[in-house]
Amino acid sequence: MEATAQEKTKSGAVREYGEPIIEIAHLQKSFGSNHVLTDFNLSIRRGENVVVLGKSGCGKSVLIKCIVGLLSYDAGSLKVFGKEINQLKQKELDELRARIGFVFQSSALYDSMTVRENLEFPLRRHGKHKSKEEVNRLVEETLENVGLLHAIDLMPVELSGGMRKRIGLARSLILKPEIMLYDEPTTGLDPITAEEISKLMLAMQQKYNTSSIIISHDMHCAQLTANRLAVMIDGINYAQGTFDELKKVTDPKVHAFFLNSH
């Protein structure tokens, strides 16, 4: 049995994390001559929220797309629930994906479907045979959790940016995943809505007891949601620690991220 990890919270209480569920070691990924991930290492424990910080285009999204098997990596090791992603067969990968929620940067709601159909889609596709009543109950319960039950019959085009993010989050949560991957969840939102989304992510993490990787360059979102931060620079995990620890780091490359944070 893997040892658990402990963290002291701001209030002084000790929080315990479970076994590692994502283990990334020496991960490499290139697109032609563009070496995006050169030697990336990261480990995430059950119940932990990790924010990966980095400049735009540095490969943060590539990292989470590798985790969920949307992209294959060139070298290194990437284990999720102890399974090496590149070695999984399609069926095994689909089973694994049912345990992972993915919130896309653009929300990626299906334009031709209503909000209800968007939420029903993963339920139907992952082969979890449920009765119509149960599907309805799950959809309504999940929408209520993100505060958008009234939007159930709307089309994505009728939703605002913040609502789309919430629905995207609800669609990812409906299968009750153990891991949540967020790709820039607050990008393109006004500061108030961005804070609402960050708080919602945190509330959902506590409600569903998920572990999360949050890709962001929004320091306020990072401060609100992260138990730990990892700074990605030049394709490696350049520095990691809690928000307060990294804020004190004098290295200019790391310090640059904290210049405008309070």
Partner: peptide, 17 residues
Amino acid sequence: GSMKVTEQIDAMEVSGT
């Protein structure tokens, strides 16, 4: 094209489709 650009195709793949 629009589904590709807005990551809907990726979302479908993640949903086991």
